[in-house]
Nucleic acid binder design. Structure first.
Length: 112
DNA sequence: ACCATGACGTTTC
DNA sequence: CGAAACGCCATGG
């Protein structure tokens, strides 16, 4: 890692992820845009990959891509753990895709 | 410094 | 609708 394990950028990503309301989801691009880096959506996902190292538990299952598809489900333990977590929060998920995505979408730039 | 990789996003076919 | 190409940016070899 660099000077600090968690740069300010990472810290913000984790902070926003933890602020996602129960039963809601957001996209990597939305977080990146909120942080002022709309072109660094990949970095957000990359930060999530490191979220497992964070002491604080990051609800990464609430973060999906712009299409509402659970692209990162393979990074979780089980095969469909991510989907089950979302369904447990009342989010409809079919074939790794969130239904009524606009309805459950949470935009930090607007809500926060 | 260069190349390869990736939990993304948009455009094009 | 699905797959591929291109762009973007940070990290590692």
């Amino acid at each position: 890692m660099s000077k600090k394990e968690t740069d300010n950028f990472f810290e913000k990503v984790y902070a926003v992820a933890c602020l996602i309301p129960y039963g809601k989801v957001t996209s990597y691009g939305a977080i990146a845009t909120y942080l002022g880096m709309p072109r660094s959506a990949r970095m957000v996902g990359w930060a999530m990959s490191s979220s497992h190292s964070q002491e604080k538990e990051i609800p990464a299952h609430r973060v999906v891509n712009r299409n509402g598809i659970l692209t990162g489900k393979h990074h979780f333990q089980g095969k469909n753990l991510m989907q089950q977590l979302l369904e447990n929060e009342g989010i409809e998920v079919v074939d790794d895709k969130i239904q009524n995505f606009e309805n459950v979408f949470w935009n930090p730039s607007e809500e926060l």
